[in-house]
Design a protein around this nucleic acid. Structure first.
Lengths: 334, 334
DNA sequence: AGGAGAAACTATAACGTTATAGATTCTTCT
DNA sequence: AGAAGAATCTATAACGTTATAGTTTCTCCT
């Protein structure tokens, strides 16, 4: 329990306790060059003794620094598999920093610019973490033009110029294709991520080029994406497989999509691992429990969250440095 | 683009534009009784025309109100199934309010009081949303004693006195027991949630009392809980089933636990739906895709998030009202 | 006419922090 | 000895908001 007054200690408390002026205390705690070493030590001792913590509102009002990093989250139909892991790994990485994480939601079918503009214009965060990146994502363009710090989970066409973390969906596509080919598939189909999003192209390119080399037929499902509701994917895949009996391999961009696809395939009596081979992506090792024959590569979302948080801090505190980037290759499970 | 100065508009901007004093503008926007109707209208018109948004730091510094609600999230080994849904539904509910959501993580194996004390002592939120509630949760005791607004996802022994949302795990236990009995089980075992948490007792009680009525053997797995890592559950269940060949029904408190249990059971050659019946809980309808024979009840996490957010706001803005509470019964799927 | 009281505004100060300019003391150099 | 300069501190003001205590103007009553 605090000794002095029962109020929260402020710079003023330390000022009275030490006999120094308030600005001196402030500068001492911020390690300013014009404060004596012994003074700094004394002030710091008092501060930690009485449990002084800077008032965020005071700092924010005076400096404009919010000490907040905002995770901008699309929340339409179903939240993607890994949202929970992403949120918690970012929050955990920020725990021992001065930064708080706020979650700013938006409906992607409305205007994705709204939350971004809101945060920039009201100055309610020091940096943004963006998800579901499009090739020419207008949010990135907007933020770069204003040099507002941000990091993306996924790359854009301006990938050289901004910090990002990305899972290498090109290598995922390649690995999936090669693995399905190894299992004897001759007609491989891709359930693509939403084509607006950048990683759809990486994945498509990876799979296509690998299969061209191998001389295997490659097709992409039209009018459906891995982010669509499970029921729609089930119905679509069931229909597709009855019309395309030669299709013997299916690449899926997420766990939920792979499950839905398998359910659809089994509805039209395809046997996974025999009639039809399926390859998916997952954040936790699960698909082979679901159906042992499913192949999969792992995307480490916790690593992503940790990197994104650190990159955001760097973007805020060292805007001069080259953007921090990380592209993690896909690895076949087992 | 703003017309006046390129700076962000403040009360001062409106003051200059209208010729009124800054406090008058403030009071007009806050609908104070001593401001004329026409003045209020004029001020509001100017405010919306120039896109005035109150500066959060200014309000927070002056009033102490943060306009922040903090979700306190345990982030140990694996994040539970529904974290993503919970986060996004809370954030979405808060989107059209003045409140921001910040995520405060902690390691449950360390001291769960740390984040709570931090937020209360530094005043960095107006209300808390707590998860993983214990029967005599010290966080609840602490917050009630200080009359700091909060809501819990789960009940405590002080359930009468604080707002909560809870899935009725008693009815879940009962429904699971009855359903497994209907399928012919004679020896039913429960993989319990962590016994520290309140809902473990509800679930246990529900299952136990239903099975006593039916005269069916009931047992609880010792030394393991549904929150333990999947591999441990797998190993434990496999071992248990070899030692307890008579066990023919298994109740699991979550999706991941049910999956792990099934994997463990199949490892020792139990056939789900024949040798062993399994009942689980899930946030999205999935388990019966995994193994069609699994029975399940649904827990609607989006509903929880929405309620928790609204209850938090009420706890802040109308502390006099009786605590907002919601207990949602379990419903058998299909 | 004088005063009470209501209505509608303004002046001042304060929340906690830090940037800026200025003050004081002490060295050091010529 | 006197000046220049370094080292270390203080005074003031400002960020945007709102609570509190005025002030002014007008109406109404006797």
């Amino acid at each position: 329990m605090p000794s002095r007054t029962d109020k929260k200690p402020t710079l003023r408390t330390i000022s009275e306790l030490s006999g120094l002026a308030v600005p001196t205390v402030s500068r001492a705690l911020n390690d300013a060059p014009d404060i004596g070493q012994d003074t700094k030590a004394r002030v710091r001792e008092i501060a930690s003794r009485i449990g002084y913590v800077p008032n965020r509102a005071g700092v924010r009002l005076r400096t404009g620094k919010t000490n907040v990093i905002s995770l901008v989250l699309g929340t339409d139909n179903e939240v993607t598999d890994h949202t929970g892991q992403l949120v918690s790994s970012i929050a955990r990485t920020l725990r021992d920093t001065r930064y708080h994480m706020i979650v700013t939601p938006y409906s992607p079918e409305k205007d994705p610019m709204i939350p971004v503009r809101y945060i920039v214009e009201t100055g309610s965060a020091d940096a943004l973490i963006l998800n579901r990146i499009e090739v020419a994502d207008p949010r990135i363009d907007y933020l770069m033009k204003r040099s507002f710090p941000f990091v993306t989970y996924g790359r854009s066409k301006w990938r050289e110029q901004h910090p990002y973390f990305d899972f290498d969906n090109g290598s995922f596509g390649r690995i999936a294709a090669v693995e399905l080919a190894r299992r004897g598939c001759q007609h491989i189909t891709l359930l693509s991520p939403p084509i607006e999003q950048n990683y759809a192209h990486d994945m498509t390119f990876g799979a296509r080029s690998a299969l061209e080399e191998l001389g295997i037929t490659f097709e992409i499902l039209q009018g459906i994406s891995g982010d669509d509701p499970g029921e729609e994917i089930q119905a679509y895949v069931a229909q597709y497989l009855t019309e395309h009996t030669q299709c013997d391999g299916l690449i899926c961009p997420s766990t939920t999509a792979a499950i839905a696809a398998v359910v659809g395939a089994e509805r039209v009596n395809r046997v996974i691992g025999t009639d039809l081979h399926v390859f998916g992506k997952e954040a936790i090792p699960f698909l082979r429990h679901f159906r042992p024959a499913i192949g999969a590569a792992r995307e480490d979302v916790r690593q992503a969250g940790e990197f994104l948080a650190k990159a955001a801090i760097q973007a805020i505190e060292q805007p001069g440095l080259p953007p921090r980037q990380n592209l993690v290759g896909a690895v076949l499970e087992d």
